[in-house]
Amino acid sequence: MQYLCQLDDIVPNTGVCALYKDKQIAVFRLADNRIFALDNYDPFSQANVLSRGILGDLDNQVVVASPIHKQHFNLESGQCLEDEKIKLTSYAVIIKEGAVYL
């Protein structure tokens, strides 16, 4: 388990990018303080940008939209909604005393 940041470092309804053993992880916080973590790398644009996407829900799934070309990824599973062949790694996150751990 590695410490990433304080919960308050993430503005509600946005994401941040955290460094975890040389990997870039996008960590998202919803308004109800649910936290999700996915790869930060957007396979479509090949850029490390997913933490900067807009959060929301589509077809009863919580998703993030890539800021480059708007593909959606399920926050829980990492599954891309537009292309079933593409699935990001999702990570389990733990919150303890206002801190976020992976």
Binding site: V11, N13, T14, G53, I54, P67, I68
Partner: peptide
Amino acid sequence: AGLQDSNDYFLGNIQKDG
């Protein structure tokens, strides 16, 4: 803040490489 497109959120146009 969370409503803005990435461009508005960072007050700049995001390019293909981020």
